[in-house]
Structures are given as structure tokens and as C-alpha cells.
Design a protein around this nucleic acid. Sequence first.
DNA 1: TGCATATAGTTAGTTAAACAACTAATCAAA
DNA 2: TTTGATTAGTTGTTTAACTAACTATATGCA
Lengths: 146, 146
Amino acid sequence: MQNNQFKKGELYSFITGKASTAIARRLQKKFNTAGLNLTIEQWSVLYQLWKEDGKSQQELCNATFRDKPSITRLVDNLEKLQLVKRIAAENDRRINLIYLTRQAQKLQDETMLLAEETLNEALESVPADRIDICKEVLKIVYDNLK
Amino acid sequence: MQNNQFKKGELYSFITGKASTAIARRLQKKFNTAGLNLTIEQWSVLYQLWKEDGKSQQELCNATFRDKPSITRLVDNLEKLQLVKRIAAENDRRINLIYLTRQAQKLQDETMLLAEETLNEALESVPADRIDICKEVLKIVYDNLK
DNA sequence: TGCATATAGTTAGTTAAACAACTAATCAAA
DNA sequence: TTTGATTAGTTGTTTAACTAACTATATGCA
């Protein structure tokens, strides 16, 4: 039993995730300043495709923790931006495989640099061992609820 | 200088805040199951008003880390649900003071219970001292970026 | 083979976030 | 007192999340 770990006054910020939204917002601003016409959500999909493209939309759902309609629209918008292409799988025509365009490949280095920069700013003055503990706790939270 | 605290594979989940969205989603499901017709975002506004109502919209912006249009719309929807009322301040008619209705007052105990329950589920098997460290790190992250 | 079921993805509707542009009320300084 | 700046809040637009209902394709079992 883990009771009363949160006093009422502390409930709010943990539930609403101030910290992660602050990080996302900062990264978005860096994208905008750099003239990148890209949302964080779109970037998070590209991020998975940079690891390996040709993933199905369902695989992108699992990797990004989004539902199917969300991925449909993100892929729609990424296609409009000419950053990805849907290609129907040959052996199963229900499946769209998502491939990066050259344009998207070019974005990887620049955006990853901005992301790392953002995290370094976010974690400035936080000792590495505390960051590790924090990451572990967040992972357990996620696993407890998924 | 705090470099390379995140390996590339770890960037993603920290930026997109999986853990906090998982918590919010779980709490939302509890609300739905309990027949509460209330979003987490609406709840987070009520949460501030339960502490003390009669706050201005600007004060709600600061307390909930949202911008003014977001609060305008949340208050719109809370008003439609007859949970709050806008009352113009007597000494400065630009200001709307937001007051809870009786209906909203009744929601407090039930929803706070569900929120605490959700956090206890989220943090099951996490030792209290690690939770404290995690909270501190998230606070620093937020302060570093705001 | 044929029919029920499962899987992949899309569409529709509501809520919310971010940003920019706007109105109305207040304040401050010439 | 009038004009210019500031503050509080609203409106419009785009992107995204979530749910439910939908289409199309594939699978499995009688």
C-alpha cells in the first residue's frame, strides 16, 4: 500500500505533466525559430521512421503511444509536407508502409540536435544520478498504467 | 555542462511525456466510468477553484499553466456544464471572477478520490524517496524552461 | 467454398492547445 | 482631459487526441 504519497497540493502538476509540456513547448519554439515547419507530434513520428522506415501505421501507433486515428492524421499531414509516403504492402493490401522522403532524411540531424539541446537546457543543474532515478520512476509509472 | 545525459533512444519518451499522459488517460477513464462528464483539463481548472474560487481568468492561466484563449474556452465549457459562473469584478469590469456552482462543489470529494487512487496505481512499487527525487527533478525541469 | 471474425486504416464529432489578431476597459503622463 | 500604452478577455485558425462508427482486406473454421 502506497498511500498519501502525494499531498493534495502536489497532485495537480504530476497529473497534468507540466514538465513534459514545457520541454515540448521549448522544442517547438526551437523548430519555429529555425524555420522548420514541423510540429513536435510530426517530429515524434519521423523520429520512429529515422530508426527504420517502412513501418506500418499500426507499428507507428505502438511506437508513439497514439491511437490509429491520430496516426492517420499525422501521416496525412506529413504526406502533405512531402516528408513521408504511404505505400501499400504487397502481401497485405490493408497495410500502409510509411517511407521517408529525401527531404525528411535531411531533417534528422538538425532536429535531433535541437532536441538534445532542449533536454540539456531542461536538465541543467540536475545531477546525472537523479536524472536516472527520475527516468526509472517515469518508466515504472508508464508500465503500471499501460 | 551536462552533455549526453540522454542517449538518442531515450530522448523521445521524455519529450513526449508518456508517463503523464498515461496518468491523465487513466484518470479520464475513471471519470467516464463513474459517469462524470468532465475532462481532465476541466477538472484541473476546478481543482484551482476548489482551493479558492472567485479567481480571475488570468489567475487561472497562471495557476494551470495555460494561455488565455485556453482558459476562455475551458471556462466556456464549464459554464455550459453549469459548473462555474463568470461574474464581472465590480472595481474593474475587464475582469471576470470565476465562481463555483453548488454542482461543482459536490464534485470535489469524488474526483479528488479518483485522482489519488490514480496516482497510487501509477506509483505502486515505487519507493517514496524515489518519488521525491522524481518530483524534484520535474520541478527543476519546469523552472529551467519557464 | 462460404461465412463469421479479426485486422488495418479512415471518417466524423467533440475537446483542447498554440498562436495571432482583435475588443473593451483601465491607467498614466503630457 | 486626452492620447497612448497596458491589461483582461474573446475570436479565428490550425493541429492534435479520443471515441465511435465505418470500409476494406484477410483469416479461420465448418
